[in-house]
Design a protein around this nucleic acid. Structure first.
Lengths: 180, 180
DNA sequence: TGTTAGATAGACAGGTCTGTCTATCTCTTT
DNA sequence: AAAGAGATAGACAGACCTGTCTATCTAACA
């Protein structure tokens, strides 16, 4: 699976690694497979990244940046801000296969990597902050929204019946507005 | 870490493997480590299990059986049955370290194993059925409870602040009874 | 045109992993 | 006492993995 060469070697490595890490798992994806699919020499790869772990961390950083940027650009429609992350999940689901939360998955495979742990923490900080500001600083409600958001991810992965996100949004409404 | 020898070799293997798989991950736990910790010879191990995958599947089967049995024994206090799985999670949390849902974790590391997929599906069937019967067959409410239950697991793992399960139960109350 | 940065292919070292096999030992049962 | 089931230790094969290294090529720029 050679990759379009309009992208730089570094970009090809990251794009390929991201797909493989997410779909098949980090430990099931060898360096040799990444460079073969990306069409890049091993020496170039180790010129851009000092280790496989650095590729993993960069992979997570990239996702986090995409997520943060999307949140920042989201329409600030008053009173339903808290819908935005769920809507984003819906878009992700529509765009292709879904294998759960990449951050959670990475933590399962590399539980001892402090860089990975840090990246996961930063990601969750971002979401929690967003939810908190969307309910005017009510920390309990924000924490509850987070539980539902987490549930949406795990449920989509393990029970892909199609209605997960809608159900999650209904629950979010219950939490925030107290209506069904 | 030699293991008490009152248990049979097979039991020692399963107990050791369960701990290591759950805490450190399946791919990060080699056969050699399992037999060393269990105090069992490699030949004995391969006499009881044809492969590492079979150990993994048995590990999941054991958890599922424990869970199913506990649900069956749970007090059938009318109208709050749906609390039971959450209470069980609370007990699990109190009993030691928590590394997320073992079924979800196994699926991350072995996404191609059909035996693992089967075991996960059976586990989730059990929970969903339980929730469904606890809300008198209301499939939508059952699905929503499942989302919250999933969320509790992921949230406990990634945001271990202590209040996750209480928040999840409050949300469950909202879903079932419509009150806060 | 010559230099240099960055790319390529691929051999290689050193380690780890799963699963097999041999050869011995220790109980239990007859 | 004899026999057999099941345990032990540990060497080994073959695959795979990460990371290093050499040696060559190409393209941009001075």
């Amino acid at each position: 699976m050679e990759m379009s060469s309009r992208l730089s070697p570094r970009e090809r490595i990251l794009k390929t690694a991201a797909e493989l890490f997410y779909k098949r798992g980090i430990n099931n994806t060898g360096i040799d497979r990444i460079i073969a699919d990306a069409g890049v020499a091993k020496a170039s790869m180790y010129n851009h990244f000092v280790s496989k772990e650095e590729i993993v961390v960069t992979y997570l950083k990239t996702i986090r940046k995409g997520f943060t940027d999307a949140l920042a650009k989201a329409p600030a429609k008053k009173g339903s801000n808290f819908h935005v992350p769920f809507q984003m999940l819906k878009v992700t689901l529509a765009n292709g296969e879904f294998y759960g939360c990449p951050f959670s998955n990475a933590l399962v495979e590399m539980p001892d990597s402090s860089s990975v742990k840090q990246e996961v923490a930063a990601y969750r900080e971002t979401i929690l902050h967003y939810f908190e500001s969307s309910v005017n600083g009510d920390k309990t409600k924000a924490a509850m929204l987070m539980v539902v958001y987490d549930g949406a991810f795990l449920n989509c992965k393990l029970s892909p019946n199609g209605n997960t996100v809608n159900n999650a949004m209904k629950i979010a409404d219950l939490i925030v507005k107290g209506r069904k």
